[in-house]
């Protein structure tokens, strides 16, 4: 009897394997959300709204991760914001959905939808649900600081966060520094180190990546200073690394933390990380400014 069951199951698996070679379940070209309203979803969940929120959270994580890993050129993150709205409507205390959701939303295209405005709106909803949670104000400040480069607004939110119960002591000085000096790299490092202090692999990796980018920005600035010196001396920028290495007595071709050589533009002499490096593009404070042109 058992042998018969095993044999029949094997046959059914075999048939399935053969069928799957020529058939795929229908997938709409653009992903669909069957429900359009969070409050409606909450009603029909019949008391299981937290479980429903967990399901939608897993869907949001898989959706975001799936698109990020996809090789498609035209990445569409259109459902990310509605999915996060569902999660937080169903479970208004779902802290991670607000905090990580904001990180997903802010990531610049093609790694994310590049919507800091939606991230701020999401975090503000979190703040409405739990006004005493310092992390939401801190994260809004972070979005203003890192993505929008609005240091006045960032300082205001850091200050507000610092006044909430349980806020770390470094928030108050950070607010003051941000207001006084704008987006200096030391503050950026402090923020990323704080975000990276987690057991969640991808967030830690993301923070480490940002810290490496900040280090690379320091090196690029230093190298561009050398280019400037070369240009004033020679009356033209260096055309290739060999010239700069020889004149500035560098130890060799400078490499970034990923092992890629920095790129030197032979026309302008401008130095930046190589587009082949995983650190490219560097998050310079304002779009288009990039590393200082010598």
């Amino acid at each position: 009897m058992l042998a018969a069951i095993a044999a029949l199951l094997t046959v059914s698996i075999g048939v399935q394997v053969v069928r799957d070679r020529g058939w795929q379940p229908y997938q709409p070209q653009t992903a669909l959300l069957w429900f359009q309203s969070g409050p409606l979803l909450k009603r029909v969940s019949l008391g299981f709204q937290n479980l429903m929120a967990d399901t939608y959270w897993i869907r949001a994580v898989v959706y975001y991760g799936g698109i990020r890993r996809s090789v498609e050129k035209n990445r569409d993150f259109g459902l990310l914001d509605p999915l996060l709205t569902f999660v937080t409507t169903l479970d208004p205390h779902f802290k991670v959905a607000y905090r990580f959701g904001a990180i997903f939303l802010t990531e610049a295209y093609p790694n994310g939808p590049g919507r800091p405005d939606r991230a701020i709106a999401l975090l503000q909803r979190g703040l409405e649900a739990s006004p005493a949670t310092w992390e939401y104000s801190h994260d809004i400040g972070f979005v203003y600081y890192w993505w929008l480069h609005d240091y006045k607004a960032a300082a205001r939110w850091f200050e507000r966060s610092a006044q909430l119960p349980g806020a770390p002591v470094w928030l108050k000085p950070l607010a003051a520094t941000t207001l006084a000096t704008g987006g200096d790299r030391q503050s950026s490092r402090q923020l990323w180190r704080q975000l990276g202090d987690t057991d969640i692999d991808w967030l830690r990796r993301s923070a480490q990546h940002r810290l490496l980018q900040l280090d690379a920005m320091d090196v690029v600035d230093e190298l561009n200073r050398l280019v400037q010196r070369f240009t004033s001396r020679e009356g033209r920028p260096p055309r290739e690394w060999r010239e700069l290495i020889a004149s500035e007595r560098l130890r060799g071709l400078p490499l970034d933390a990923t092992g890629q050589p920095y790129a030197l533009d032979p026309l302008t002499g401008r130095i930046d990380v190589s587009p082949q490096s995983t650190l490219w593009p560097l998050p310079w404070p304002r779009e288009g400014t990039g590393p200082a042109t010598p």
Partner: peptide, 14 residues
Amino acid sequence: ELTAGQDLKIIKDL
């Protein structure tokens, strides 16, 4: 693997 660090909350909910 799927919850971005929310395993405990989700296990409790579930």
